[in-house]
Design a protein around this nucleic acid. Structure first.
Lengths: 157, 157
DNA sequence: ACAATTTAGTTATTGACTATAACTATTATC
DNA sequence: GATAATAGTTATAGTCAATAACTAAATTGT
C-alpha cells in the first residue's frame, strides 16, 4: 500500500532545475508579488474597488486637495489613465473634484466621509489578507523586507 | 539670495502623505518590481528577448527535455500563452522541439548550443543591470531579501 | 502687454499581456 | 472498448499601460 499522502512533491510541482532565474531579484519580486496581489484584488473587489482605485482613494484621503497630476506622479502612472478612475470614484461619491480658484486648470481632489471610511475599512482588509500570507514571517523579517524594498525603490531615483 | 539647489524636495516629488499604502507589502513589492523590471527588459531587448522568453529559454536550458506543460507550470503561466513564445525560440534556433516517442502528445524542449550561450550571456547582463540598482545593498541584505521573498512565495502553496 | 511656451486635464487609440474556451490528437482509466 | 483526461494549439476577449492629440488656462520672454 502506497503512502496515501505527502511523499514530498505535490507542492509546487516536480522540482524543476533553475540555475539562473531564482537568483534574480526581479524574478523573485515578481513571483512574490503574484502571490500577494490576487489576494488584495479579491478583498478589494468585495467593495467594488480595484487595486489602483484603492490606491488613488488612499492617497487622496491622506492628501486633501491633491490634484490629478500630483496623484499620478505619486502613483507613478499616466495622468491620462487616471481620469476614468477619478471619474468613477467621484460618481460613487467617494471623492469630490472641484476647481482650484487660483489655477482653474486644476481640480482639487478630496475624499468624502464615505470615501475615507471605505478607505479605512478596505485598508484593514488588505492588511489582514497580507497577514495571512506572511503569517510565518516574524516582525523583524517583515520590517527588514519593507526597509530593503524601500531602498531598492529609492536607489533608482 | 535663496539656496540655489538641494533644499530637499526634488527627488520623488513634494513628498505626498501616505498612512496606508507604504505599509502594504503588495504595494512595496510592486514599486520595487517596477524599478527593476524595465532595466531587465532593456538589456534583454538588446538580444531580442522579452523577459518571458528569456525565462523560458533559461528553464529549458536547465531542464533538457522538459515539456511545455511542465514549463508553463514552472513559470506559472498558461500553456496556451506559451505556444507563440516557444514557436519563436524554435524559429530563432535557440531551442528544438521534438516529439517524445513514449507519449506523442508531448514535445521535448531542448536548448541548442546557441540558445545556451545566449541564455548565459543574457543572464549575465540582467544580473549586472540588477547589481547597478541594488548597488548599495550589501550581500547580507541581498541574501536576506531573496530568502524572505522565497518564503513569501512558498507560504501560499 | 502680448506672443510663444508650458501645464492640467481629457479623449481616443494602440500594443502587450492574461485568461478562457473550444478544438484535435493521443494517452489513461474503468 | 467506451469514457475521461491530458498535451498542444488556435482564436478571442478583457485588462492595462503608453502615446498622441486636443482644449483651456497659466507662465515666460521680450
Amino acid at each position: 500500500m502506497p503512502q496515501t499522502d505527502d511523499l514530498s512533491e505535490d507542492r509546487g510541482g516536480p522540482t524543476v532545475e533553475d540555475t539562473v532565474l531564482g537568483d534574480l531579484i526581479g524574478y523573485r519580486l515578481k513571483r512574490a508579488y503574484m502571490q500577494i496581489q490576487p489576494q488584495a484584488q479579491r478583498v478589494l473587489a468585495e467593495d467594488d474597488l480595484r487595486v489602483v482605485s484603492f490606491s488613488c482613494l488612499s492617497i487622496i484621503t491622506d492628501n486633501t486637495g491633491i490634484v490629478q497630476s500630483e496623484l499620478a506622479d505619486a502613483l507613478q502612472m499616466e495622468r491620462s489613465n487616471l481620469v476614468v478612475i477619478i471619474d468613477e470614484l467621484e460618481q460613487r461619491g467617494l471623492i469630490t473634484r472641484k476647481k482650484v480658484p487660483t489655477d482653474r486648470r486644476r481640480y482639487a481632489l478630496t475624499a468624502t466621509l464615505r470615501g475615507r471610511r471605505l478607505r479605512d475599512r478596505a485598508a484593514e482588509k488588505v492588511r489582514s489578507a497580507e497577514d495571512e500570507i506572511i503569517g510565518r514571517l516574524d516582525e523583524r523579517d517583515r520590517a527588514h523586507l519593507m526597509a530593503v524594498l524601500q531602498r531598492l525603490e529609492d536607489n533608482t531615483r
